[in-house]
Nucleic acid binder design. Structure first.
Lengths: 347, 347
DNA sequence: CTGAAAGCGCTTACAG
DNA sequence: CTGAAAGCGCTTACAG
C-alpha cells in the first residue's frame, strides 16, 4: 500500500494489478505486447491509485534523454513583444508535447549565462535565446553536443548558430524614408542602448535613409539609451527643448514610443510632430492621431524559431540559418503629419 | 573518456579527477567533508570536461524530491494582464532558485486539465493556476498529497485551495458609481463571457452601483461575450445603434476596452461617450481623451501568490487563504466626460 | 576525510 | 505475451 503522501509509482501499480513492472510500463506507454486482460487490469489499478507517469525519471532513462521541454530566454517576459513571442513558442511547443521554461534576464548578461546553465541543468531539449550578451562562446560546448539552439530577434556573436529576426535596418529605413517623403528633414531617432544589435541595425537604417535623401545626420537629434517609457519621455522632452527641434520622430522601440507620445501629448504637440514607431501597440489605431508603425510579427518569429528547433529534434540536419522576417509599414496618421518640406518632397 | 556528444556525468569527473563518485558529489554540492586537495582536483576535472550537474536526476533521488520548478497555468500568456503576472511569478521564483513552466489553456477547460497533468508529470513543486474551469475536484488528490497550489485571479470551485485575486465587484462598483456621479444614468456594461468568475463579479458590482443610485438595470445595454478586441468593437457598435444608446460605458476587460475605444473613435464619439475600463493599458495616458481605468496590479497578484507557494514549500503550515488585492480608480479624462444628468448628480 | 553499495522511477535489452 | 535484471545520473545511509 503506497504512502498517502507519496505519489504512486509504476511499482505500486504493478503490485495492485498483480503484474510485473514491465507490463505496467508497456500499458502506460501504449507499447505493443500486452494482452487485453493485462491492459485492463493495469489501467484499473492506475486509475484507482491515481497513477501518473514520472516524466523526469522517464527522460533520465530513455536513450534519447528527451525531457519534452525547451528553454526560452527573454530579456523581459512582461514586454509586449516578448510575451507575444513567448505565446507563439508555447503554442508550437505544446502541439509537439513539450513544455516551455521561460526566464527573464532583465538585460543582465551574467544573469543570462546563469539562467542558460540552469535551463541546461534541467535538461531542456533545446534553447531559444533573445540575448543581451555580446559574446556567446560559452555556448559552444552545448552546440557541439548537438543541443538545438536558435537565437531570436538578435543573432549570436562569436558562435555559429541559427537566428530568426526581423529586417531591422530595412524597417528603420522605411520609417525614416516615409517621414522624409512627408516633408520632414529634421527627424529625431530614439533607440535602445548602444551595442544592442536590433538598436544598432535600426540606427543604420535611419542613417542610410537620411544619406540617400542627402540630409545631414545631426547627432543632436539622435538619442540612444534605456528603452522604457520614462527614459523615452525624458529624451523626447530634451529634443523638444532644442533651439532647432525635430519636426518628426522615429521611435526605435515600443516602450520608447509610448514615452515619446506621452511627452508630445503633455506639450500639446501630438498633432504637429510626426511619429513612426518600431513595433506595433495594442491601442495604436485608437490614438489621436492613430499611430503609424513599423509592424513586426513576434508571433512569426516565435513560430519559425520553435519550428526550426523541433525539426532539428526530429532529425533534420544541423544547418546554420539566418531567417529574416519582413516588417511592414502601417500608415495610420501620426507618420503622415506633413513636414515643412512637404511641397518639395511630393513634387 | 566520455563520448563527445554525451554530457559528462559525475562518474566522468570522478574518473578524470581520480576520486570516487561521492567525492565529486560532495564538492559539486558544497558539502562538508572534502579536503582542499580533493576539492581542487574535482573542480579542475569538472572545468576541463564542462561538467554540469543534472538537476533532474538529482531531484529524482533527493529525499524531498524537489524539482526547483513551479507550474503556471494561464489562459493566454500573450494577454498583457497575464504576461505582467507571469513576469512577477518568474522574478520571485528565480530569486528562490526555481524555474517557471508557463502554459496557455486558450480558455479550453479540457486542455487546462491536460496541461495540469503534464506539469505534474514534470514534478513541478507547486502550481499557480488562472483557471477557466468550473470544477476543480480533479486536483483534490494533488492537494491531499501536499502539492502547494494557489489560484490566481479566480478562486477554485469545489476545492478548498488558496486564492489571490482583485476586488472585482468593488472595482466594478467604483467604476459605475464614478460614471453615475458624472451625470450618466444609461451606462452600458461589456463583460467577459458568462460563468467566468471575474466577469460575474464585475457584473455584480455594476448592478449594485445602479441599484444604490436607484437606476434601472436595462439588459439591452449589458453585453457578455468573448473578451477580445473584435467582439468588444462589434458589441459597442450594436449598443450605439440602439434607439436609446448609452451615454457611458464600463468595459469589463482590457481587450474589450480596446474594442470599445476603436468603435467610439471610428464613429467620432470618443469625446462624447464616457468610458471607464477595468485593467490599465500601456497607452492609456496618451489617449484622447486619456483613459480612465480601474487599475489592477497583476504584479502584486503574481508576487503574493508565488510568495505564498514558497512559504508553503519552506515549511509553513497549509492554510486556505483568500487574498484580495485592492483596485484603484485612475481618473484621466474618458471617465469624466459629463453625462446628461451632471447638474443633478453634482448637486 | 573517503568511498562502496543501494536505490529514486523509469526504460532498455534480453530471456523465457 | 510476460517479466527479471541492469542501469540512466544522482543522493542517501553507512562503513571504514
Amino acid at each position: 500500500m503506497p504512502d498517502r503522501l507519496r505519489r504512486p509509482t509504476m511499482n505500486d501499480v504493478a503490485r495492485t494489478a498483480g503484474v510485473s513492472l514491465k507490463s505496467v510500463s508497456r500499458v502506460v506507454n501504449d507499447e505493443v505486447g500486452a494482452s487485453q486482460e493485462t491492459r485492463e487490469r493495469v489501467l484499473a489499478a492506475a486509475q484507482a491509485l491515481g497513477y501518473r507517469r514520472n516524466d523526469a525519471a522517464r527522460a533520465l532513462r530513455r536513450s534519447d534523454g528527451r525531457s519534452a521541454s525547451i528553454g526560452l530566454v527573454l530579456e523581459d517576459i512582461g514586454n509586449p513583444f516578448a510575451s507575444a513571442l513567448n505565446r507563439a513558442v508555447e503554442q508550437v511547443a505544446s502541439a509537439q508535447g513539450s513544455l516551455v521554461l521561460a526566464v527573464s534576464t532583465n538585460a543582465d548578461p551574467d544573469r543570462e549565462e546563469q539562467l542558460v546553465y540552469r535551463l541546461l541543468a534541467r535538461a531542456v531539449d533545446a534553447l531559444l535565446i533573445m540575448s543581451c550578451r555580446r559574446d556567446h562562446r560559452f555556448l559552444q560546448p552545448e552546440l557541439d553536443r548537438g543541443v538545438p539552439m536558435v537565437f531570436v530577434d538578435r543573432p549570436p556573436r562569436r558562435l555559429a548558430a541559427s537566428t530568426v529576426r526581423v529586417a531591422n535596418s530595412k524597417g528603420a529605413h522605411d520609417a525614416t524614408a516615409h517621414l522624409i517623403a512627408h516633408g520632414h528633414h529634421r527627424i529625431a531617432f530614439l533607440g535602445d542602448r548602444p551595442s544592442l544589435y536590433t538598436a544598432d541595425e535600426r540606427t543604420r537604417g535611419y542613417l542610410r535613409a537620411l544619406r540617400e535623401a542627402g540630409l545631414p545626420a545631426d547627432p543632436a537629434v539622435q538619442w540612444r539609451g534605456q528603452a522604457d517609457q520614462q527614459h523615452g519621455a525624458l529624451a523626447m522632452s530634451a529634443l523638444l527643448d532644442l533651439a532647432d527641434p525635430p519636426t518628426a520622430v522615429f521611435a526605435g522601440n515600443n516602450l520608447i514610443t509610448i514615452g515619446v507620445l506621452a511627452t508630445l501629448r503633455r506639450r500639446g504637440l501630438h498633432r504637429q510632430v510626426a511619429v513612426v514607431g518600431f513595433d506595433d501597440l495594442d491601442l495604436a489605431e485608437v490614438m489621436d492621431p492613430p499611430l503609424t508603425v513599423i509592424e513586426q510579427d513576434p508571433g512569426a518569429i516565435g513560430r519559425l524559431a520553435t519550428e526550426q528547433v523541433f525539426s532539428r529534434l526530429a532529425g533534420s540536419p544541423s544547418t546554420v540559418k539566418d531567417i529574416v522576417v519582413p516588417t511592414r509599414l502601417v500608415p495610420r496618421g501620426s507618420g503622415e503629419i506633413p513636414g515643412p518640406y512637404q511641397a518639395l518632397s511630393l513634387r
